[in-house]
């Protein structure tokens, strides 16, 4: 590329004083007048910048990451000692935020276990008890409220989700003309959310549960866009949980309190299920619509259900291989009589 000087006059530089009138133009020389002008402009600029930055005064120093958190390694790279230090830091953080001393552990997956959920659509009455039990167990923010389970009220005769009502509000459930379909994370065997995360802040564990390292997530929400089941939730504001509502039994990858700006999701209550308990949503279900267990164990409920019931998965066509199955009983026990 050649740079030919152009013919038009440079009006700008010709109008000047050529540096000979003592006004201080030209390289290097600075007059008092120009000094004052530049000084005033610089001062004004600094003042405007300070004003622009002023909201930062509201920043709670506790909201900023501590040095330990800042240099903390990715979950998979931490040594045992480093994990212990991280758990200690989290305990202190919870103590400071909520005034409650928790027990935070790092509960690992068990060998020979692959968790699967099965939900009986013939039984579910849409009472949403699972939704609230989940919030209580997993220390979700109460304000703004974060819920992992969404229950859809579906008209009979369709599985088209767009016809479902997310915000049904009846004095009494179930309605005779609907069935109810709770949706939560399907713990896919081929999870698109894991694939898209640019920094491996979310991954699938050996027992099939997809987890999030809340200390690693940068909050880009690409996983939230990728999930076909709308199972992920983002902390748009700093989560608020009343002190007495906090569940003190916590695990690193599951229900420890989150900070603002990170993603969270259902993790099959791994702090319970990896220690032999059932998920909170299952325990609270009044009609026994929820079944959970190890699909590698031939005698487990879920294995029997997968073998003998009319089972289907949601959106099979997106190819994510969910570990969350829906099924119907052979007949509708409540549809004919109308009682629950």
């Amino acid at each position: 590329m050649t740079m030919d000087p152009h013919n038009k006059e440079d009006q700008a530089s010709d109008q000047g004083c050529q540096g000979s009138c003592g006004c201080g133009s030209g390289d290097g020389k600075v007059s008092r007048r120009s000094f004052l002008r530049v000084g005033a402009a610089a001062l004004g600029g600094m003042a405007a910048l300070t004003a622009a930055l002023s909201p930062l005064r509201e920043l709670d120093p506790d909201d900023l990451p501590s040095v330990e958190e800042f240099i903390q390694k990715h979950y998979k790279e931490m040594s045992g000692e480093q994990m212990q230090a991280a758990l200690g830091r989290i305990e202190k953080d919870v103590q400071k935020r909520f005034g409650v001393t928790p027990e935070v552990a790092d509960i690992k997956p068990l060998d020979g276990v692959e968790f699967v959920y099965a939900l009986n659509l013939s039984r579910c009455i849409g009472c949403r008890k699972c939704v609230h039990a989940c919030v209580a167990e997993n220390n979700q923010s109460r304000s703004p409220e974060v819920q992992y389970i969404r229950v859809l009220e579906m008209p009979r005769g369709t599985t088209d989700l767009e016809q479902g009502d997310h915000h049904y509000d009846r004095p009494k459930v179930p309605s005779d003309h609907h069935y109810y379909m709770p949706v939560q994370c399907h713990q896919c065997a081929s999870p698109p959310c894991v694939k898209v995360c640019p920094i491996e802040a979310t991954w699938q564990e050996s027992d099939g549960i997809t987890v999030v390292d809340y200390d690693w997530c940068i909050g880009c929400r690409y996983c939230e866009a990728a999930c076909p089941y709308w199972a992920r939730r983002f902390n748009f504001a700093e989560p608020q949980i009343p002190k007495d509502k906090l569940n003190k039994k916590m695990s690193y990858l599951s229900n420890r309190p989150r900070h603002k700006g990170v993603i969270e999701k259902c993790h099959y209550c791994l702090q319970r299920t990896r220690q032999g308990q059932m998920p909170a949503c299952l325990e609270v279900c009044p009609v026994g619509a929820r079944k959970f267990g190890n699909v590698l164990d031939a005698d487990s409920d879920v294995t029997q259900i997968l073998k003998h019931k009319r089972v289907f998965v949601l959106k099979e066509d997106v190819g994510t291989l969910p570990r969350f199955f829906y099924y119907f009983d052979e007949r509708y026990p409540r549809s004919q009589g109308g009682e629950a």
Partner: peptide, 26 residues
């Protein structure tokens, strides 16, 4: 992209654990 991040202070995680080539964002 930066203003869209929930935790811009963790930007350096991009250099520490980069999900390449799986993630289109990387």
């Amino acid at each position: 992209v930066t203003v869209d991040l929930g935790r811009p202070d963790r930007f350096m995680h991009l250099f520490l654990r980069f999900n390449f080539p799986m993630s289109m964002l990387s």
